[in-house]
């Protein structure tokens, strides 16, 4: 079966695109899929750092496109997962070094040999974003429960609709159930109400994400982390499994939680 090509994008910066790509890649690859992730943020590469592969980069995506190396030479194998590869972005070039048709050609060469190609998009809606979505079969839009991030996600979904990229699926990242409960944060329902697209995952706020990103070992490796669990669930949904959403509402006393479990509240 040819690979599913999935782009993760957001419009706004800093909402967790790169973290999501790294974690989904790890979750898919530890589940037996062959995965290649491509860092589309040329000039501001990050994905290599989060995957902990920074010091192994010899060739990058622009080298492949400009013919200085073969595709295989630019693919860096993960430290832990033998079926996970990274094609890093170039740090010393800019977004104009790559065109949407370059991306199409590159991805075409990967399609037959892998199960998933994950593309990390840069923030914004300019050239880099256009490159990142050019080859996508499916686009995941990631947002935080914040008004500005949701506004940008809405804009991006509109562009994807105009480009006939099919219906986008939404990841809500860094949801804080305690704040939602106090009405100090948009709830998942508020976000969905505005964006009106399919929800593919809700990732709770979790300090382990930052800790593990800094260590170069994505949180999806950590069996105890809730955020890691959320990313593993999204990965399973990408494979077509039906997985119920996590119960994030772990606030309140033990008694209240037991009551909720018993369906009495």
């Amino acid at each position: 079966m040819p690979a599913q090509v999935i782009t993760v994008t957001s419009g706004k910066g800093g909402v967790g695109k790169t973290t999501a790509v790294a974690n989904l890649a790890v979750a898919l690859a530890s589940n037996g899929s062959k995965v290649v992730c491509i860092d589309g943020d040329i000039g501001l590469r990050n994905l290599d750092v989060i995957l902990g592969l920074e010091n192994r980069i010899v060739y990058d995506i622009v080298d492949v496109i400009e013919g200085r190396c073969r595709l295989k030479q630019a693919m860096i194998r993960d430290k832990k997962l033998p079926e996970l590869y990274l094609i890093p972005a170039a740090q010393t070039r800019d977004k104009n070094s790559v065109s949407p048709s370059d991306m199409n050609r590159l991805v075409k060469d990967l399609r037959n040999d892998y199960d998933f190609v994950l593309i990390d998009s840069p923030a914004g809606i300019e050239r880099g974003f256009r490159n990142a979505i050019a080859a996508a079969d499916r686009v995941l839009v990631i947002t935080n429960p914040e008004v500005s991030a949701v506004r940008d996600a809405d804009r991006v979904i509109g562009i994807l609709e105009a480009e006939d990229k099919g219906p986008a699926a939404l990841i809500i990242n860094r949801l804080n159930p305690a704040l939602v409960k106090k009405s100090d944060m948009l709830s998942a329902d508020d976000v969905l109400d505005l964006l009106a697209v399919e929800l593919i995952g809700i990732v709770p706020e979790d300090e382990n994400v930052i800790i593990s990103s800094n260590r170069g070992a994505p949180v999806a490796h950590d069996p105890k982390s809730k955020a890691g669990q959320a990313f593993r669930n999204i990965a399973r949904r990408l494979k077509g499994e039906k997985v119920p959403f996590l119960d994030l509402d772990s606030s309140g006393s033990l008694w209240e939680r037991l009551q909720r479990l018993a369906g009495r509240k």
Binding site: R151, D152, D154, I159, L194
Partner: peptide
């Protein structure tokens, strides 16, 4: 109509759907 969409029309406009912020 999502954020970033702009519709200009020299007549009436009827939208069967939402008009989102932006």
């Amino acid at each position: 109509l999502r954020s970033g969409t702009r519709i200009e029309f020299p007549g009436h406009v009827v939208v069967f759907g939402d008009v989102n912020p932006g």
